[in-house]
């Protein structure tokens, strides 16, 4: 799932302070699961804005709400008209939601309240860990199920680098060396020799470097559009 974190409140305040009628809009999907932007967080952030506005003697009318997913048209249908009545929508969805809403709301600005960070998993309660780089050309079959793009600090395809140290990455002692993990895991699977196979050069065009990506599932398209 997509993991993000709420922006520092000061930064949010700087964005918001000039507006009179503000809607804090949460998204009850991934960003709710990481407790950064669901219904509850929208509620709490609205409360903070009200406290701040009162203390700063700024007249501001703050509302809050959330929809199921800020990345699909249908979920906006019942609320879009209402949202357009605000001076600002502070979206605490991931960046996708902010883009998505911004393109549809008309003249009202949509600002982000969250820094969208990565695709991650939840190894234990309260921990969110980046596990996939979204590179568009998956190699996990070759690397023991450990993503070198996301989990190696340098996204090396032929690691480890010289900075590996007792299983840790030179970037930080808190980071496991992905290539150390890959080797250990492949030993365990008995497939270590696969690492010695020479791989063809990677096609990075499906990644960030080939421009914005798009997936089209032909059989799901609108009939009229297709014709």
């Amino acid at each position: 799932m997509i993991v993000g974190q709420q922006k520092k409140f000061d930064e949010i305040w700087e964005m918001v302070k000039g507006f009179r009628k503000v809607m804090v809009l949460g998204c009850n999907t991934c960003i709710a699961v990481c407790h950064a932007g669901g219904d509850k967080e929208a509620d709490a952030l609205a409360s903070m804005l009200k406290i701040k506005a009162a203390n700063e003697k700024v007249s501001m009318d703050v509302s809050h709400g959330a929809i199921q997913r800020q990345c699909e048209n249908e979920f906006f249908t019942p609320v879009l008209e209402d949202l357009a009545k605000y001076d600002l929508v502070l979206s605490i969805a991931c960046g996708v939601g902010v883009n998505f809403l911004s393109a549809r709301i008309g003249k009202t600005p949509v600002y982000p309240g969250v820094n969208t960070q990565f695709f991650g998993g939840v190894p234990k309660p309260g921990f969110f860990e980046e596990l996939c780089g979204g590179c568009g050309s998956c190699v996990l079959n070759l690397t023991g199920g450990i993503c070198p793009i996301a989990r190696c600090s340098k996204s090396l395809m032929n690691g480890p680098c010289g900075g590996t140290n007792k299983g840790k990455c030179e970037v930080s002692q808190d980071i496991d060396c992905a290539w150390f993990l890959i080797v250990e895991r492949m030993k365990q699977l008995g497939t270590l020799e696969k690492l010695f196979e020479v791989q063809p050069p990677r096609d990075w065009s499906g990644s960030f470097h080939g421009g914005p990506r798009r997936v089209v599932v032909e059989h799901l398209r609108d009939i009229e559009e297709k014709q």
């Binding site: 009850n28 709710a32 219904d39 509850k40 967080e41």
Partner: peptide, 8 residues
């Protein structure tokens, strides 16, 4: 109740 991110 207060732990639920969706106030569900």
């Amino acid at each position: 109740v207060p732990a639920c991110p969706c106030q569900a």
